[in-house]
Nucleic acid binder design. Structure first.
Lengths: 412, 412
DNA sequence: GCTCTTTTTTTCGAGCTTCGAAAAAAAGAG
DNA sequence: CTCTTTTTTTCGAAGCTCGAAAAAAAGAGC
């Protein structure tokens, strides 16, 4: 159960509140922070001068804009990029990316590799990840050791964000990535579902559109989802959860990559659209390694007119629509962002998606459902990881209390 | 966004924490409260003596058990039943119940009526509700005016808990029950989904079993669900949400009471089982007013052996199982409580439910899913409403701060 | 019956924190 | 150069929680 508030928690929490306000607003003045947090000016003044002295915040000097208003000009505060760095990595099918991100959230360096994830052993997969991070850190010199690693992975993780339970990118399961990374680099590491990170990023990117409740769906070889409810990332009770692609669309239906039948993904994943377009039986084994170009060509033919391709996209749209309908029966209608290369074919999918939703209980409020397209998933995933890692770091800072450890860019 | 903590919030929050600890534990000592809240003994001592002086808590004197331990015996604290009363009401098809509940959560008086809900006009429905509450209060005398009304209703409410959006018990929609009650009785009123209240009650009744994550499913004429995730009641973003019964089980399938096709309820609701058992077509209009005795007889025949009845229960079990499978794909497996008269036939449903779940993605952790039967829904709904109302009242108490209004049973 | 031990509860001063009011600082307006 | 306006800092007051110590209330032992 929830616990009482100790007196010394107060400062900690309010320090965190200030940092979070700066992170959200970018370059707010003390007055703005006071307004958004509801704390008094005196309190904000005290806390921010502490945080500046400790090197987490900076005063932005060079605002050489002729201030339009009278009176003492506001002094903008910003995060001190040098206060910390973190490492983020994104691992998906045959693709690995890692980057160093500063405390202000900007990517400092990035590297990519293309390992054959499906062919690697458990330990080689981990080794590949360790290698790219090592390479990244070596290029940086030893001055600024990062404070944390967050890895986004295509697949399911445990609820503690430490172990990959299952993933379509490798035949192996239960890989303890977080433990391995912590052993190698001696800093805290966590592992997150890639689609969840997409949702986190969308919320930071466009808070006007993606605020309290929305859905991010990845249309790719498989189907993934990140869900934000009440302003918080929704996760399962025992795993990263939100396996929208594996809700049952058609009991006993098409064979899914997960081995079950009738999942949404078994109709709407690239491999499923491909399978249907080829007029292969629904229970034929999902093909791996379908080229993106082939899918594009499929979409072109589907747009051209009737035929197996068009029909394949119809089935995909219906599966997505009925899936969303069932989801909305539980959580109520919400804006949807379709992310990934597959979203480029959204124009072909949309009519069928809308038609399906109209046949479900959420059809009543179909007007409340808006669709949005984001073709590039990688930057989203990276940003989501970065914000997640920085949120952890921020929490550590406010856990500090009176005895603050010197951050890298300490001023006084 | 979340807001900073003011200095004077501290006491308010910790007062609420103490009351909630007492409500949860029943008769804890100050020492126990200190342990569960993590606050110091001095703080608990100060707060609880305030709360006793204000009349919200009482010291339990008569614990004439020979204490087994040495030392000063613990003094048990309990809620003062006289501190406040509330009114709860439950409205379902052709049935209305209302009760007065004291601050300790015990039912003081209860009344029931059997109005023909489907035949009543909007205003007559409200009038019926007002009448039963008035009658209840008249029987009580005018001394203790209740502080709040909570109404549980079979149907969907808005997210603000003020208006019934849609309900199977009446052809009318958008009935502003909360506004009407507040006008009539001049005290705050809210309206909740009945199945959500079942879930709330289960959490209070058996916290060992129903703690952070579980599902309560009502098997009755229709299918309803209350869902607790992370220890909190899950609601939709715009409504009471959690319309498990209207997730799509079979696209384009059987006709549901809601007018759509293929909903879980269209296979698992009493009327659906009845329809299938009678071998009527799946798109025939759902029958109203099926007698409970007839359903019981159906279950008996289904238990006896093969036949249309058995097959009807099979279809119901499959719909429930696949629905749960899709739900668990999103939230991960969790314990399930089947509530209501329909749960008495759980023995016939169970094999098919389990078989269906095994065919879904959550089948992997089928062992984590436990089923439990609670035949009587009404006491659950009533208790859920009571706990909800009392939680509101508790919040009002701690919002009080220094200038506490005298509660009914004020001592000093 | 008396003293010792143990446990719970209360008391009290210290140390923080936030707040409001007032002062100081930093600009533009005239 | 002075006045006005707005932001930021300073300072004393009030309130909260905490730890230590004291008080209270029993049983244990002789």
């Amino acid at each position: 159960m929830s616990v009482g508030i100790r007196h010394d928690d107060l400062r900690r929490r309010n320090r965190a509140m200030v940092i979070s306000a700066v992170r959200r607003a970018g370059q707010p003045s003390r007055t703005e922070i006071a307004a958004t947090t509801g704390l008094s000016h005196s309190t904000i003044s005290a806390i921010s001068s502490d945080l500046i002295a400790e090197g987490y915040l900076k005063q932005v000097k060079g605002s050489e804009q002729p201030s339009l208003k009278r009176g003492r000009p506001q002094v903008a505060l910003s995060l001190n990029p040098a206060a910390a760095t973190i490492v983020v990595a994104v691992l998906s099918l045959n693709f690995l990316s890692a980057a160093i991100v500063d405390y202000a959230g900007h990517v400092v360096v990035e590297q990519q590799r293309k390992p054959s994830t499906a062919a690697l052993s458990k330990s080689d997969l981990v080794a590949e990840l360790v290698a790219i991070i090592r390479q990244l850190l070596a290029g940086q010199g030893t001055t600024a050791r990062p404070l944390r690693i967050v890895l986004a992975i295509q697949g399911t993780t445990d609820a503690e964000a430490r172990t990959m339970r299952w993933s379509p990118i490798t035949p192996h399961s239960d890989i303890a990535f977080a433990d391995a990374l912590e052993r190698q680099f001696a800093i805290p590491a966590t592992i997150e579902n890639d689609c969840n990170m997409m949702a986190v990023a969308l919320r930071w990117r466009d808070p006007a559109r993606y605020r309290d409740d929305f859905v991010a769906i990845l249309l790719s070889h498989g189907i993934g989802m990140g869900l934000v409810l009440n302003g918080e990332l929704f996760t399962g009770t025992r795993s990263s959860g939100g396996e929208f692609g594996h809700m049952t669309h058609m009991p006993g239906g098409a064979l899914c990559r997960c081995g079950r039948r009738g999942c949404v993904e078994a109709y709407a994943g690239n491999y499923a659209i491909w399978r249907n377009a080829q007029c292969k039986p629904e229970d034929s084994v999902p093909e791996d390694g379908i080229e993106e170009a082939d899918i594009q060509a499929l979409a072109v033919r589907a747009r051209a007119g009737e035929g197996a391709e068009r029909e394949a996209y119809r089935k995909a749209g219906a599966a997505l629509g009925f899936g969303l309908g069932s989801l909305f029966a539980l959580i109520d209608p919400a804006p949807v962002a379709f992310v990934g290369a597959g979203a480029a074919a959204f124009d072909i999918l949309e009519p069928e998606i809308r038609a399906a939703i109209l046949q479900t209980a959420s059809g009543r409020h179909a007007d409340a459902i808006s669709f949005d397209i984001v073709p590039d998933e990688l930057p989203l995933m990276r940003q989501g990881c970065a914000m997640r890692a920085l949120t952890y770091v921020d929490q550590e800072i406010f856990a500090v209390g009176t005895t603050a450890p010197a951050p890298a860019g300490r001023v006084a």
